[in-house]
Simulated assay, not measured.
Amino acid sequence: MDDIVAGLPPALVLTPSIRPVPAATVRAPSAGSRRGSRRGRYRSVVNCPTLWRSVRITLVEERRSYLGQFSPLGVAGRDPIPMTVEADCPFCEIVRRETPDTREVYRDEHVVAFFPVEPATLGHTLVVPRDHIPDVWSLDEEAATRLAHITLRLSHAVKSATEPEGLNIIQSNGVVATQTVPHLHVHLVPRWSGDGMGPIWPSKTSYPEAQKDDVWQRLRSECRKVGGK
């Protein structure tokens, strides 16, 4: 029987739902078999355990391939386009793996992390959602939770890899806030004394107390609308 199996062409051991096993090698499922039973159909290979093992292994692989069509990570070797993309966005190109020289460090079904072309310090990493989300005001709470979770995990990775003295986590929105790419991103910037970053805050401000009180009251009012006390 093994000699017979060895002589079968490859098509005969693929998933029967795609390339059917010839009827001569299979008994029809019993009337009471579950669902009309794929299981019954494939376990009915007549006196041929080697052929059954081949079919079973192929069924598993075909099932993985089929489910991969619906997985955010896709089938091995392929990476699906995110749900929303922007044609001219450089970060969307990186998400789609269209820039092979990118120094990518992390990827999952929701987030990609990579070095910028000109890092502020060694280890400077950008964390971006795979979907094209322009800024924080376009970010929903579920996506924000995923982004924050991965940012926290990657901050530990940056610390372990670079052993910095400190770390800046920076997220900018709008050109005036130095957002140069309109695709939401978080900067993880490891810091050392005397590095090229310099201070990121003004040394001193002199806003009148009345202005600070006015903004304070307006902001407190808006915060109560989102559940604050």
Rank of each mutant, 00 (worst) to 15 (best):
V75G: 01
L73M: 09
E98K: 05
P182G: 05
Q179W: 04
F114R: 06
T99F: 09
W137C: 13
S160Q: 09
R103C: 13
E62A: 15
A143L: 06
I150P: 00
E142D: 08
F91T: 04
Y66P: 04
F91H: 08
S65R: 14
A161S: 08
V127T: 03
E86L: 15
R63K: 14
I133M: 04
L154T: 02
R64A: 11
Q179Y: 03
A177K: 08
L139T: 03
E62M: 14
P82W: 00
T145G: 13
E98M: 05
V105G: 12
T125C: 07
K159R: 15
D108T: 11
S65Y: 03
T178G: 05
V175P: 01
F115L: 14
Y66N: 10
S54H: 06
V128F: 03
P116F: 12
L184Y: 07
V181A: 12
V85T: 15
E142T: 13
A113C: 07
K159F: 03
T99V: 15
C92P: 11
T58Q: 09
F91V: 08
N173V: 09
T151M: 04
T121C: 06
I94K: 09
T99K: 13
P182A: 12
R97H: 04
G77R: 09
F70N: 12
T121F: 03
A143H: 03
R96G: 01
L67W: 04
R103S: 15
G68N: 06
L139R: 03
R63S: 15
D88G: 13
E93C: 08
E86F: 14
R97G: 02
I94P: 02
L67G: 08
F70Y: 13
H149V: 06
E109H: 13
V85L: 11
A76D: 01
H132L: 12
D135L: 06
